[in-house]
Amino acid sequence: MNKITLINIEFLRPKRCVETYELSIMDEKEICYIYNYEDKFYRYFRTLRSLMNYLKDRIEPKIKFKEKNEMMEFLRYKNIITINQTEDGLVEVEV
């Protein structure tokens, strides 16, 4: 089970924010982003780039939730992709 730490909340408008979480288990860590729309809809983003694509162009993510409990359960048990692997993946995509 992952440890979930809320790192930051950035309000875009009233009742719309981006929550930044750190997920960790043992010595593996992952940063992820949740777009929270009126505490009714949550969208999960693995990278800052995918979040920015959503905010700019409304490119919908594959992982969405209608309840906070569902979202937290997903974060608690998801496989962690370490921060280094995520950064390496971004470099490979850009090259």
Rank of each mutant, 00 (worst) to 15 (best):
M1A: 11
N2Q: 09
T5C: 01
I7K: 15
I7R: 13
N8R: 13
I9G: 01
E10S: 10
F11M: 01
F11N: 10
F11V: 01
L12H: 06
R13D: 07
P14L: 01
P14C: 02
P14G: 00
P14E: 09
R16E: 13
R16K: 12
R16M: 02
C17I: 00
C17T: 01
V18L: 04
V18Q: 01
E19P: 01
T20H: 05
T20M: 03
Y21V: 10
L23Q: 08
S24K: 12
S24H: 07
I25C: 03
I25H: 06
M26P: 00
M26N: 08
D27S: 11
D27Q: 04
D27F: 15
E28L: 09
E28C: 02
E28H: 05
I31D: 07
I31Y: 09
I31K: 14
I31W: 03
C32H: 02
Y33D: 08
Y33R: 06
Y33S: 07
Y33K: 01
Y33V: 08
I34M: 08
Y35G: 06
Y35D: 06
N36P: 06
N36L: 00
E38F: 06
E38M: 12
D39A: 07
K40S: 08
F41S: 10
F41L: 09
Y42K: 07
Y42T: 09
Y42M: 03
Y42P: 09
Y42V: 07
F45Y: 06
R46Q: 12
T47P: 09
L48C: 03
L48D: 04
R49P: 02
S50I: 02
S50L: 00
L51D: 13
L51I: 11
M52Y: 13
M52N: 15
N53Q: 11
L55S: 02
L55E: 10
K56F: 04
K56T: 14
D57T: 14
R58E: 14
R58Y: 15
I59Q: 08
I59N: 11
E60P: 04
E60V: 08
E60G: 00
P61Y: 01
P61E: 05
K62H: 09
K62A: 11
K62G: 11
K62P: 04
K62M: 13
I63A: 06
I63F: 09
K64P: 00
F65A: 12
F65S: 12
F65W: 06
K66N: 15
E67H: 11
K68C: 04
N69M: 10
N69S: 14
N69R: 12
E70W: 05
M71V: 11
M71S: 07
M72V: 12
E73V: 03
E73M: 08
E73Y: 06
E73S: 14
F74C: 07
L75Q: 05
L75G: 12
L75T: 11
Y77V: 14
Y77A: 01
K78R: 15
K78S: 13
I80K: 13
I80W: 07
I80H: 10
I81G: 00
I81F: 10
T82A: 03
T82N: 15
T82D: 15
I83E: 14
Q85V: 10
T86L: 11
T86G: 00
E87Y: 13
G89H: 04
L90Y: 10
L90H: 05
L90E: 15
E92N: 04
E92M: 11
E92W: 09
V93P: 00
V93Q: 11
V93L: 13
V93A: 09
E94I: 14
V95M: 02
